[in-house]
Design a protein around this nucleic acid. Sequence first.
DNA 1: TTTAACTTTCAAAAAGTTTTGAAAGTTAAA
DNA 2: TTTAACTTTCAAAACTTTTTGAAAGTTAAA
Lengths: 168, 168
Amino acid sequence: MELAEAKQKFIDTWGRLGSEWGINRTMAQVHALLLVSPDPLSAEEVMSQLSISRGNANMTLRDLISWGLVEKQHRPGERKEYFFADKDAWNIARQVAKERKKRELEPMLRVLNELAEVEGDSKDPHFKTFQSSVKDIRALAQNANKTIDTMVRAEENWFWSTFFKLFK
Amino acid sequence: MELAEAKQKFIDTWGRLGSEWGINRTMAQVHALLLVSPDPLSAEEVMSQLSISRGNANMTLRDLISWGLVEKQHRPGERKEYFFADKDAWNIARQVAKERKKRELEPMLRVLNELAEVEGDSKDPHFKTFQSSVKDIRALAQNANKTIDTMVRAEENWFWSTFFKLFK
DNA sequence: TTTAACTTTCAAAAAGTTTTGAAAGTTAAA
DNA sequence: TTTAACTTTCAAAACTTTTTGAAAGTTAAA
């Protein structure tokens, strides 16, 4: 397989994975493109390499920056901005976990906490099932939350050497 | 808050979470409905409680069964089938992790393995960046894969006793 | 300043996904 | 076997999300 073909396959695969996990396909593709680029790319280069519009490239790059996966670079004497992706897989995983926790897990936990407080007739099977399902799922979510906290705080070395041992 | 209102909120929240994570909103809502139902429900009941069509209810229930989250129950002397959700949060998490691993992680790993084999000029920065990004992400994916394997094999007790102690 | 090289916005269009419901299929009981 | 109670299918419609591109906005350099 040629490098160009392999890059394309990587971009497509990363894009598919993203969309299966609720992340905009184009955003994942732009991320993949930057992951395999040794140097920062301009918006123009992203547009032409992925055949996407200027508006789309702009929004997507801003999203990637807000996810903490990409940063802008400025070159002296040039108006153009360049975009560069953090290439460290563990940083990427941490960053994504951190953002999704903030955007999705925490809001859900707030609702679950509220629902766990709902009072009712403890003889009513409907109430009993509701309460135990909610509390059980809440415990799971709290646990996920805590695990992500630990993950976010962890150093790379700690992660590769210690964390996965638990699961071996 | 009334129980009925709380149930509705639970169903909506679970539905939203599902769609943020690439799981059909209705499927997540049907799952939530069954999670708070002490008894199995018929397709008819699911349809009317969530105001969805017969076709949608049927497909969604079959999907939930294929995810291992719901099972059909048959009552002697009745044609109708009833649907019942496993209420155990740890089983649910394991089941979802197992299915997503099979449906998404493993196919991606196959592509990454293939891409990690691509040969090229090790003096070329494009090739070097490609190779190291692919290998690094592959290592992460392999770790995730292994972690899920362990999770799937783990007993409930192991999980609850090791992780959830603080929250009970 | 002014200019022009760039970035950002956003309404409309396109693409993708989900839902509907009527018709076809299935099967348990009579 | 026939019937009718139920389940399944799938093409078309509705809905949701993403993308486009032209216009507006910004700003560094001349």
